[in-house]
Protein backbone atom coordinates (compact mmCIF):
# COMPACT_ATOMS: atom_id res chain seq x y z
CA UNK A 1 0.00 0.00 0.00
CA UNK A 2 2.96 2.23 -0.59
CA UNK A 3 2.50 3.20 -4.18
CA UNK A 4 -0.16 5.29 -5.76
CA UNK A 5 -2.82 3.52 -7.70
CA UNK A 6 -2.70 3.94 -11.45
CA UNK A 7 -6.46 4.19 -11.45
CA UNK A 8 -6.43 7.16 -9.13
CA UNK A 9 -5.03 9.19 -11.94
CA UNK A 10 -6.94 7.56 -14.71
CA UNK A 11 -10.28 8.07 -13.00
CA UNK A 12 -9.38 11.64 -12.18
CA UNK A 13 -8.66 12.07 -15.85
CA UNK A 14 -11.97 10.46 -16.76
CA UNK A 15 -13.87 12.83 -14.47
CA UNK A 16 -12.06 15.85 -15.84
CA UNK A 17 -12.73 14.63 -19.37
CA UNK A 18 -16.43 14.25 -18.75
CA UNK A 19 -16.67 17.66 -17.14
CA UNK A 20 -15.00 19.05 -20.22
CA UNK A 21 -17.44 17.25 -22.48
CA UNK A 22 -20.30 18.59 -20.43
CA UNK A 23 -18.92 22.11 -20.82
CA UNK A 24 -18.53 21.72 -24.55
CA UNK A 25 -22.10 20.53 -24.85
CA UNK A 26 -23.93 23.05 -22.72
CA UNK A 27 -21.99 26.30 -22.92
CA UNK A 28 -23.30 29.01 -25.21
CA UNK A 29 -20.30 31.27 -25.16
CA UNK A 30 -17.63 30.18 -27.64
CA UNK A 31 -14.76 31.21 -25.35
CA UNK A 32 -16.17 28.98 -22.62
CA UNK A 33 -16.37 26.11 -25.06
CA UNK A 34 -12.70 26.58 -25.80
CA UNK A 35 -11.95 26.51 -22.07
CA UNK A 36 -13.83 23.24 -21.78
CA UNK A 37 -11.71 21.84 -24.56
CA UNK A 38 -8.66 22.72 -22.48
CA UNK A 39 -10.11 20.63 -19.67
CA UNK A 40 -10.40 17.69 -22.05
CA UNK A 41 -6.81 18.11 -23.19
CA UNK A 42 -5.64 18.24 -19.58
CA UNK A 43 -7.48 15.04 -18.86
CA UNK A 44 -5.59 13.44 -21.73
CA UNK A 45 -2.31 14.77 -20.36
CA UNK A 46 -2.94 13.32 -16.93
CA UNK A 47 -3.51 9.96 -18.58
CA UNK A 48 -0.35 10.25 -20.62
CA UNK A 49 1.79 11.11 -17.63
CA UNK A 50 0.20 8.43 -15.49
CA UNK A 51 0.76 5.75 -18.07
CA UNK A 52 4.29 7.02 -18.57
CA UNK A 53 5.02 6.66 -14.89
CA UNK A 54 3.36 3.28 -14.77
CA UNK A 55 5.39 1.88 -17.63
CA UNK A 56 8.57 3.69 -16.70
CA UNK A 57 8.58 5.22 -20.14
CA UNK A 58 9.53 8.80 -20.81
CA UNK A 59 7.31 8.85 -23.90
CA UNK A 60 4.36 9.84 -21.76
CA UNK A 61 6.02 13.07 -20.69
CA UNK A 62 7.18 13.78 -24.23
CA UNK A 63 3.74 13.41 -25.69
CA UNK A 64 2.19 15.44 -22.89
CA UNK A 65 4.55 18.24 -23.95
CA UNK A 66 3.44 17.82 -27.53
CA UNK A 67 -0.19 18.01 -26.43
CA UNK A 68 0.54 21.23 -24.56
CA UNK A 69 2.10 22.69 -27.70
CA UNK A 70 -0.84 21.63 -29.79
CA UNK A 71 -3.23 23.07 -27.21
CA UNK A 72 -1.47 26.39 -27.49
CA UNK A 73 -1.85 26.32 -31.26
CA UNK A 74 -5.47 25.28 -30.96
CA UNK A 75 -6.33 28.10 -28.56
CA UNK A 76 -4.56 30.60 -30.80
CA UNK A 77 -6.45 29.62 -33.90
CA UNK A 78 -9.68 29.00 -32.02
CA UNK A 79 -9.70 32.43 -30.43
CA UNK A 80 -8.86 34.00 -33.76
CA UNK A 81 -11.90 32.32 -35.23
CA UNK A 82 -14.03 33.45 -32.31
CA UNK A 83 -12.80 37.01 -32.78
CA UNK A 84 -13.63 36.84 -36.46
CA UNK A 85 -17.13 35.60 -35.66
CA UNK A 86 -17.54 38.33 -33.11
CA UNK A 87 -16.42 40.95 -35.58
CA UNK A 88 -18.87 39.76 -38.19
CA UNK A 89 -21.86 39.14 -35.94
CA UNK A 90 -21.28 41.14 -32.76
CA UNK A 91 -21.91 37.97 -30.83
CA UNK A 92 -20.12 34.82 -29.80
CA UNK A 93 -23.31 32.99 -28.91
CA UNK A 94 -23.17 29.59 -30.52
CA UNK A 95 -26.96 29.60 -30.90
CA UNK A 96 -26.61 32.36 -33.43
CA UNK A 97 -24.25 30.34 -35.52
CA UNK A 98 -26.62 27.90 -37.10
CA UNK A 99 -25.71 27.92 -40.77
CA UNK A 100 -25.99 24.15 -40.79
CA UNK A 101 -29.68 24.33 -39.90
CA UNK A 102 -31.75 22.33 -42.28
Amino acid sequence: MDDLLLNQFLLLGAVLFCLGVYGVLVRRNAVLVLMSIELILNAVNINLIAFGAWRGDVAGSVFALFVIAIAAAEVGVGLAIVLLIYRNRRSVDLDDIAELKG
Binding site: D3, L4, L5, L11, V21, Y22, A50, A53, W54
Partner: peptide, 23 residues
Protein backbone atom coordinates in the same frame (compact mmCIF):
# COMPACT_ATOMS: atom_id res chain seq x y z
CA UNK B 1 -24.08 12.26 -22.06
CA UNK B 2 -21.22 13.11 -19.74
CA UNK B 3 -22.36 10.63 -17.11
CA UNK B 4 -22.77 7.92 -19.72
CA UNK B 5 -19.24 8.56 -20.90
CA UNK B 6 -17.97 8.54 -17.33
CA UNK B 7 -19.72 5.28 -16.62
CA UNK B 8 -18.28 3.61 -19.67
CA UNK B 9 -14.78 4.92 -19.09
CA UNK B 10 -14.83 4.28 -15.36
CA UNK B 11 -16.03 0.75 -15.78
CA UNK B 12 -13.47 -0.12 -18.42
CA UNK B 13 -10.63 1.48 -16.46
CA UNK B 14 -11.47 -0.38 -13.28
CA UNK B 15 -11.97 -3.53 -15.26
CA UNK B 16 -8.67 -3.26 -17.05
CA UNK B 17 -6.27 -1.78 -14.49
CA UNK B 18 -7.99 -2.59 -11.20
CA UNK B 19 -5.51 -2.14 -8.36
CA UNK B 20 -2.31 -1.91 -10.35
CA UNK B 21 0.08 0.64 -8.97
CA UNK B 22 2.49 3.12 -10.32
CA UNK B 23 6.02 2.33 -9.21
Amino acid sequence: TALLLLAVMGYSLLDEFGWSRTP
